[in-house]
Computed example of a mutant assay.
Amino acid sequence: MTTTSKKQDPFFILGNPRSGTSLLRLMLNSHPEIVVPPECGFLLWLSDKYAYQSSYDEHTYSNFVDDLFKTKKIETWSIQKEKLLGKIKAAKPKDYTSMTSIVYSHYAMENEKKPRLHGDKNNYYINEIDKIEKLFPQAKLIYIVRDGRDVAASYLKIKNSQISSQYKPTLPQSIENIASDWSKSTLKAQTMQKQPNTCVILYEHLVRDPERTLSTVCTHLNVDYSDNMLQFYNNNDEPVDFLQWKAKTKHPVDTSSLGSYKKELSQKQILSFEQHAHEALKAFNYL
């Protein structure tokens, strides 16, 4: 049994959509001691039903696995239901953290990894910090922040793209709403960055100096830096459907998207965003 099948709080990758959370996930998932599966929110979705039970038995395990395989996107992990259930029954976990850790451990073994740490990435988690900290009090958080104007440009590009995937992200459509959502999550990152369980990085730093930025993240997670993380594109496990809007993750990191808003947004849109998100832009020296 791997370490990740024992009781161990995961770490969480947090950030606004289109801020580099998938890139960071892939980089960390390429580390030999870390596994971070593709996005799937079962960890919180199922917690209300299973996290606070007084006892865990085979009936609980069976119900949990049944519910797990009904959650959106779990199918992208390509794991077998009966095989996973067998591993949970054999391990006999006695709490929610241990039970869910086996899911990550099983995913890792199916992908020929024996990690020391497991992480979870989902953009909606940024609005669930209180719940995360209650469920997983030892969890470490990694926020990634990107210039909101580039985020807005990326949102609008997706809006105007022909994406057939059932998983196409639902994003705010107006500059004002994008600015409001981005400001809320970014100011939350600013508030939490002084807490010892939290590491805040900038997307711009990650793509300009990935080695130094990833070294900071590894220090936060108490693992050694690995050059394997820079080869993330060779280990890209993003589901094919996701690649319709995450195609850049198939290639080495580059800086071509930095400041793209200057070409892709009108001056009116830029000014509007800056007016609605002035505080958050200033907080991270984007203004």
Rank of each mutant, 00 (worst) to 15 (best):
T3V: 14
S5F: 12
S5E: 13
S5K: 02
K7T: 14
P10R: 02
P10G: 05
F11K: 07
R25L: 09
L26N: 12
M27V: 08
L28S: 06
S30A: 13
F42M: 09
L46M: 08
S47H: 05
K49W: 02
S54A: 06
D57V: 07
S62R: 05
F64G: 02
L68N: 05
K73A: 04
I74W: 02
W77I: 05
W77K: 07
W77Q: 01
I79M: 09
E82G: 06
G86F: 08
I88C: 05
I88V: 14
K94T: 14
S98W: 01
M109E: 14
E110T: 12
N111V: 03
N111S: 05
H118L: 14
D120H: 09
K121M: 00
Y125R: 09
I126G: 01
E128P: 00
F136P: 08
A139R: 08
A139L: 14
I142Q: 06
I142M: 09
V145A: 06
R149M: 01
D150K: 04
V151S: 01
S154Q: 02
L156N: 06
I163E: 10
S165K: 01
S165C: 09
Q166I: 11
K168H: 10
K168P: 02
P169H: 03
D181Q: 15
A189G: 15
T191R: 13
K194P: 02
V200K: 03
I201T: 12
L206W: 09
R208S: 15
V217R: 00
V223F: 06
V223G: 10
N228Q: 13
N228V: 03
M229H: 04
F232L: 06
Y233E: 08
N234P: 00
F242R: 01
W245Y: 00
A247N: 14
A247R: 13
H251E: 06
P252D: 00
G259T: 06
K262G: 02
L265G: 01
L265M: 11
L265H: 03
Q269T: 00
I270E: 00
S272Q: 14
E274A: 05
Q275K: 14
E279K: 13
L281S: 08
K282V: 12
K282E: 13
